[in-house]
Design a protein around this nucleic acid. Structure first.
Lengths: 202, 202
DNA sequence: GCTAACTCGTATGGTTGTGTACGACTTCGA
DNA sequence: TCGAAGTCGTACACAACCATACGAGTTAGC
């Protein structure tokens, strides 16, 4: 795996090529999950053979692109302040996550097809943990609801983000509007309704 | 389009073949959106050539399958009582929609790829209208929120359903649990929070 | 029972994409 | 500067898939 892991010391130009390839793979796959290896090589400005010299299969390439995108996302999200009121922290987190998810949505679906089942979810474990911790804290504080499975609460946020990304991609929603809508929707799902006026009798 | 539209009178066996093909197409494409024409023909128990005799291209076949699935869905949903409290009506509608969407999710994605852009949404217009009317009524009754675009409210329900379908498909959520979770989530999104405890100051 | 409609197998052509092989050229790095 | 590492083009093998053509057999419908 010549991604970021301990490389057996490569030459400088090889390093540069790999960087350009991974970058191009992210860019191309993010706009078309079915982009061919050839497309990506062209976009990277290298020959297809060079690419195959570093990534033996398409799957390896896609995984490297996804890992890189996740790394970049992790970096961007690590600076988000998650302290204080959980409801507001959630808003801040979503505000920063929104564009990241929107951009790498197609990439994820490419990975879904090219990688063995479960691998994508496995790679998303770290970012998911961040969300999970925030939700748990909100629950402990009595701000978030506890009557639905935590795994669903985590994933539904992702589905909402993906949905909003598609709305904006196809021009059905303004990009600026999207953040507001996503946050309002997510809060509606997560925030515990205090009294519940005409609660359904059990 | 040899689907349901006024056929130029076909023979009985042809009619039967078409029915079997469309049915097989629905079944196969619903479990694998990339199923080949050959797969579908085999599943229908007919030769590939027979299939091509009725559907000139793959796109035509996929569209026929989608139209048929939508027709079946429309039929099932037409018996749902949407009167009374909008919140409860929504629950009934989702309870009936849930499994339909879950089953035809892959089919939709197949259509997304095989059909020209926007065509899928066009075909979904009728079912979407049903949801829209319910939401509007709920808004008029003061039961549903009005601070988010109606198109988003409609689509987000669909995203939730798709999400729940995936959760259940990959075994991360019980099928029985899914309906409850979907309904609770959808209600949280749509139902207007009466007081809003610590409203964000404008 | 006769015709037209239908079915079906096999073969063929064309496209697209993945992955490998070979050989020549260029660039890094010590 | 010299060897190794890297790059690159072309070509090839291979596999799917879509779509068409031909021709022979089968069935429905009047």
């Amino acid at each position: 795996m010549p991604t970021v892991s301990a490389g057996p010391r490569r030459r400088a130009d090889a390093e540069r090529s790999i960087a350009r390839i991974v970058s191009a793979a992210r860019e191309r796959l993010s706009s078309d999950p079915d982009a061919s290896v050839d497309d990506i090589a062209k976009a990277a400005g290298v020959g297809r053979m060079t690419l195959y010299g570093h990534f033996r299969t398409r799957a390896e390439l896609v995984e490297a692109a996804l890992v890189d995108a996740l790394r970049a996302g992790e970096e961007a999200l690590s600076s988000v302040d998650l302290t204080g009121n959980a409801r507001d922290a959630l808003a801040r987190l979503l505000d920063s996550s929104w564009s990241l998810v929107a951009e790498s949505m197609a990439l994820s679906s490419a990975a879904q097809k090219a990688l063995p089942a479960g691998r994508v979810r496995e790679l998303h474990a770290a970012p998911a943990r961040r969300v999970e911790e925030l939700i748990r804290r909100g629950q402990d504080d009595g701000v978030f609801r506890t009557d639905l499975p935590i795994s669903w609460l985590i994933n539904v946020l992702h589905y909402i983000l993906k949905g909003a990304a598609e709305e904006s991609r196809t021009g059905r929603m303004e990009t600026g509007e999207a953040a507001r809508v996503v946050i309002a929707t997510a809060q509606a799902i997560l925030v515990a309704t205090p009294p519940d006026p005409h609660a359904t009798p059990k």
